[in-house]
C-alpha cells in the first residue's frame, strides 16, 4: 500500500494547540487589517481609540458603525458556517454535506422575502429575527420529516427531506420575487451572501445564538466522531444516535441560522473549510470544531477584504468572492480525491 495518505502521522496535541494559537493570531491581524482598509485607510491606533475611547468624530463613527460591524459579521458568519458544515458532514457521514442540507438557507430566504413582500423593506433590523426563525422552522421540519418512515433517523432520510423542503421553499421564494420587483431589489444582495451594511444591532442579535452554538459544538466534539461511524456502530458503542443527531441538528440551527440571518447564505464556507481542516489535522472532531471555527472566520474576513480591494467596491458580496475561490478549489479536491481512490 502506497496511498497518498499512507505515511501521514497524526499531529500531536501540542502541535495542534500551537497551530490553533497561530490561527487565532492570524484572525486578529486579519480582522484589524480588514477594519483598517477601505476608501480611507485607518491606522490601527485609531481603530483601538474608536473602540476604547470613542469620541464621536467622523473616523470613529465610520469605524464603529460601518467597518467594525462588517468585520464582526464576517467573523461570526464564517466561524458559525464552517462549524455547522463540519457537524453536518459528521452526522451524515457525507463529505459533501453542508448546513443548506437541512433547509437552513431556503427557510431563511423564504422568511426574509415573505416579510419584505408583506411589510416592505422598512422592516430594518427585525428581518434578522424572521430570517433566523425561518431557518429554524425549515430545519425542524426537515428533521421531523427525515425521522419518519423506513429511512427514519438515517442520514439518507435527513438528506432526502432536506432536498424536498429546500426545493419547495426556494420555488415559493422565487415565485414571490417574480411578482414583487421592489423586494427583489432589496434582497438581491442578501441572497448572494454579504456582510455589507451590517449594523452592531444586527450583530448583537445573533451573537448569543452563535456563541451558545459554538460552545455546544466544542462540547459535542468527541460525540461527533463516534456518531460519524454510522448509527449501528454508534449504538454498539453505547451512544444513542437519535439523541446526539438531534442535538447536532439543534446546534446547526443555532449556528447556521444565526449566520444566515446576519450575512445571507454564504456558500462553500461550510463545505470547504471542514475539508481543509480534516486534511490538515485529521478527523478527531474534538479538534476539527475549534479549527473550523477559526478557519471559517479567517476565510470570510480575508475574502471580504480581498473582494473589496480587488473589485474596488465596498458592497461587493463576500459570498461571490468565496464562490470564485471555493468552486475551483472544490473541483480540484474532488478530482484529486477520485484519482487517489481507484
Amino acid at each position: 500500500m502506497t496511498g497518498r495518505r499512507t505515511g501521514r502521522l497524526a499531529m500531536t496535541n501540542g502541535a495542534r494547540m500551537a497551530t490553533l494559537l497561530v490561527l487565532f493570531c492570524l484572525l486578529v491581524v486579519a480582522a484589524m487589517s480588514a477594519t483598517a482598509i477601505g476608501t480611507v485607510t485607518m491606522p490601527f491606533s485609531r481603530i483601538a481609540a474608536a473602540i476604547f475611547q470613542f469620541d464621536g468624530s467622523r473616523d470613529h463613527l465610520l469605524i464603529m458603525t460601518i467597518r467594525l460591524p462588517r468585520v464582526i459579521a464576517a467573523v461570526l458568519a464564517g466561524g458559525a458556517l464552517a462549524v455547522a458544515g463540519a457537524i453536518m458532514q459528521a452526522v451524515t457521514n457525507n463529505p459533501l454535506a453542508s448546513p443548506d442540507l437541512v433547509g437552513i438557507n431556503a427557510g431563511a430566504a423564504f422568511a426574509v422575502v415573505t416579510v419584505m413582500t408583506l411589510f416592505g423593506e422598512g422592516v430594518g433590523d427585525i428581518y434578522v429575527w424572521f430570517s433566523f426563525v425561518g431557518a429554524a422552522i425549515a430545519a425542524l421540519v426537515v428533521y421531523a420529516l427525515g425521522s419518519l418512515g423506513s429511512v427514519g433517523h438515517s442520514p439518507l432520510g435527513l438528506v432526502l427531506a432536506g432536498v424536498i423542503v429546500g426545493t419547495f421553499l426556494t420555488s415559493l421564494t422565487t415565485a414571490m420575487l417574480i411578482f414583487d420587483q421592489s423586494t427583489l431589489d432589496a434582497v438581491r444582495l442578501w441572497t448572494a451572501g454579504s456582510v455589507t451594511g451590517r449594523t452592531m444591532a444586527q450583530a448583537r442579535t445573533v451573537v448569543p445564538f452563535i456563541v451558545v452554538g459554538l460552545v455546544a459544538a466544542l462540547l459535542l466534539g468527541r460525540h461527533l466522531t463516534t456518531l460519524s461511524l454510522g448509527a449501528d456502530a454508534s449504538r454498539s458503542l453505547g451512544q444513542n444516535p437519535v439523541v446526539w443527531r438531534g442535538a447536532s441538528v439543534a446546534i446547526v440551527i443555532l449556528l447556521a441560522g444565526g449566520a444566515v440571518a446576519l450575512a445571507g447564505p454564504i456558500g462553500f464556507v461550510g463545505l470547504v473549510v471542514p475539508h481543509i481542516v480534516r486534511m490538515c489535522i485529521g478527523v478527531d472532531y474534538r479538534w476539527v470544531i475549534p479549527f473550523a471555527a477559526l478557519g471559517g472566520a479567517l476565510l470570510v474576513v480575508i475574502a471580504d477584504m480581498v473582494g473589496r480591494l480587488v473589485f474596488g467596491s465596498q458592497s461587493f458580496p463576500v459570498g461571490v468572492t468565496i464562490a470564485l475561490v471555493g468552486a475551483p478549489f472544490f473541483l480540484h479536491l474532488a478530482r484529486t480525491r477520485l484519482k487517489g481512490e481507484t
Partner: peptide, 22 residues
C-alpha cells in the same frame, strides 16, 4: 458489523479510541 464505514482520513488510533466511549 458487515462493511463498517469510517469517515475518510480517520486513523486507526482515532477509531480504537471510540471503543472507550461507553
Amino acid at each position: 458489523l458487515q462493511g463498517p464505514v469510517a469517515p475518510e482520513g480517520l486513523t486507526v488510533a482515532d477509531l480504537v479510541r471510540q471503543g472507550r466511549y461507553p
